[in-house]
């Protein structure tokens, strides 16, 4: 457990390099849109975040609609496009902004987004967190309790979104079962967050649909994430992620606000 926590701390602190025993599995650095420009080098993915639960851990239940427990993403991507190392299908003006942000990061002065300031990560980025997530299922509601920055998402089952939503960081989520797949529809997100860690832009019109199902005997939770944004994207896109069943993990107290060394100054993340 302590080892796990240290690993998690390392993931949180390191931006370009991660000392978590996972370097060997990282891909070689790629550049944005296969550019020749070293200033557009992308941060390599973390090839393995969570492994399988240790032998002897409590087995997942056979109920395909029982997601309750702790899950942990298997790998971590800094760019959330349709496939690894590929950016979201941004319109040209927003691709230019992403290039600017990647260059700023490579200069050592990354542009600040909400999460740098201990505000929530927004969606879809929150689901890419390299920290564990506890799912709690109660009548009419499925709750995601994220270790990262004490984010809590409530998915209201079999409801409609309210007609008028004031945009906020995690939006408004409604869910339904399609067979044994949980379909979560999120809207009402503000535009203060980035799609991903590299800095892809979304607008308040972003619409996120997540499809979750248990696979591999319940040891994996598969997410198919679909992102739509008529303002910044040329077309909707989707990608797939795996979260590992981790009944052995107790998510830790995570206090971003404690001694936030990376608190932004004038819009730039300051590493101290």
């Amino acid at each position: 457990m302590i080892k796990t926590n240290l690993c998690r701390v390392a993931v949180a602190v390191a931006i370009a390099s991660v000392s978590c025993g996972v370097q060997a599995q990282q891909r070689p650095a790629q550049r944005l849109n296969n550019s020749d420009d070293p200033g557009l080098t992308l941060t390599p993915a973390i090839g393995r975040v969570s492994a399988e639960a240790p032998a002897g851990s409590r087995a997942p239940t056979a109920d395909p609609r029982d997601f309750e427990g702790v899950w942990w993403i298997s790998r971590y991507e800094y760019l959330l496009g349709p496939s690894a190392g590929v950016p979201p299908p941004l319109k040209p003006e927003y691709m230019t902004i992403l290039e600017r942000r990647v260059r700023a990061k490579n200069r050592g002065a990354p542009e600040a987004d909400a999460s740098t300031d201990c505000r929530p990560h927004g969606m879809p980025r929150l689901m890419e967190s390299p920290y564990p997530i506890r799912i709690v299922q109660t009548p009419g509601q499925i709750t995601f309790m994220h270790e990262v920055a004490h984010n809590i998402r409530r998915i209201f089952m079999d409801q409609q979104h309210p007609a008028k939503l004031k945009p906020n960081y995690l939006g408004h989520s409604v869910g339904r079962w399609e067979g044994d797949t949980l379909v979560v529809d999120t809207t009402g997100l503000n535009d203060k967050t980035f799609i991903d860690d590299e800095g892809s832009t979304h607008s308040e019109q972003i619409h996120v649909v997540e499809r979750y199902r248990k696979i591999n005997g319940g040891k994996d939770l598969e997410l198919v994430m679909q992102v739509t944004d008529p303002v910044t994207l040329t077309q909707p896109y989707s990608y797939t992620r795996i979260y590992k069943w981790r009944p052995d993990v107790k998510p830790a107290e995570y206090v971003c606000e404690e001694n936030n060394r990376n608190a932004p100054e004038n819009g730039v993340t300051v590493a101290k």
Partner: peptide, 19 residues
């Protein structure tokens, strides 16, 4: 009434790296 999203860092105008 439901819980509303409360973001302290926003309420106080940014996280304060002071202890």
């Amino acid at each position: 009434t439901p819980i509303v999203e409360d973001v302290c860092a926003e309420r106080i105008g940014g996280s304060k790296p002071k202890r």
